[in-house]
């Protein structure tokens, strides 16, 4: 079974600066494997190990996503090989375009049975790239995936649905988007990072993928901080704990919460 992990080399939100007016400055943010993607690496590796499968990492983005550090960061997470499309034409590309390029790369890799992705990217958070990729490929798409196992040529997939868990069987090729806690990702050790440098990486030429130009590009016109509500900003001195607790309950009663 050939399994592709579609992941993002994303700007780390910890390095982003949010201005008082809600604008976000990403200029100092460093790249890393997007926070919700290691779960996808782990699901893919475990699945591959149970069915003698192969795991190929796939990421697309601007030229800066291809550094020795970035390659090792991905290849040390249980991949057998890595495929990248790193082209500045993809700088600032929206989720729909990224999904289209991912689809082109999946076709170029060939004979792929399943694509596993994280729930969303940590920097943009579109929550649609995996499903748009499925649509682009003409494959089935399943999100909210909490577990996947192989059963012969099929995949048994558990999904989180409102109020419970649903189990489905996918016979044909499928794109899966995992929940953030579907698996506990391993932290790569020194041997895995050393081994990563010996694994093959293939860089695909964007032009050769023949991805049609986007009909439109969606870009945010503004960003704002979330509404924090009507906070009272009351501070209680906790030096005397019982007194502070009494003050807290009195204040909550007064405001009608209790």
């Amino acid at each position: 079974m050939k399994i592709v992990v579609a992941y993002k080399w994303a700007a780390n939100p910890q390095d982003a600066e949010v201005g008082p007016d809600g604008t976000v400055d990403w200029s100092r943010a460093k790249g890393a494997v997007s926070e919700y993607d290691p779960v996808a690496f782990e699901l893919a590796r475990v699945l591959a190990d149970t069915c003698a499968g192969e795991v190929v990492g796939l990421t697309v983005g601007a030229a800066a996503i291809d550094t020795p550090l970035a390659r090792k960061a991905a290849l040390s997470r249980g991949l057998d090989s890595l495929v990248m499309v790193a082209d500045d034409a993809l700088r600032g590309a929206d989720g729909t375009r990224i999904a289209a390029v991912l689809a082109g790369a999946v076709r170029a890799i060939g004979d792929v049975d399943v694509v596993v992705a994280g729930e969303s990217s940590v920097d943009v958070g579109d929550r649609q790239v995996a499903m748009t990729l499925a649509a682009q490929l003409g494959w089935a798409g399943l999100n909210a995936v909490r577990a996947v196992t192989a059963d012969g040529g099929s995949l048994v997939v558990e999904r989180e649905v409102a109020g419970g868990v649903e189990t489905v069987v996918a016979g044909g090729p499928v794109v899966l988007a995992a929940t953030a806690d579907a698996a506990l990702p391993r932290v790569p050790g020194m041997k895995e990072i050393l081994g990563a440098a010996k694994k093959p990486t293939q860089v695909l030429d964007l032009a050769a993928l023949d991805v049609p130009a986007p009909a439109d590009t969606i870009a945010p016109v503004s960003t704002a901080r979330p509404d924090t509500g009507n906070r009272q900003g009351v501070m209680l001195d906790a030096a005397d704990l019982p007194a502070a607790a009494a003050q807290l309950t009195a204040a909550l009663r007064q405001s009608g919460v209790l």
């Binding site: 390095d15 100092r28 460093k30 550090l69 960061a73 932290v187 990072i193 050393l194 440098a197």
Partner: peptide
């Protein structure tokens, strides 16, 4: 240092050093 250290480390990498981050 957030900008300078990566540059120095990249010079080491170019010289053949194996950079192992996150360990």
């Amino acid at each position: 240092r957030a900008r300078f250290d990566p540059w120095l480390a990249s010079k080491a990498e170019e010289a053949g050093v194996f950079l192992m981050a996150g360990v």
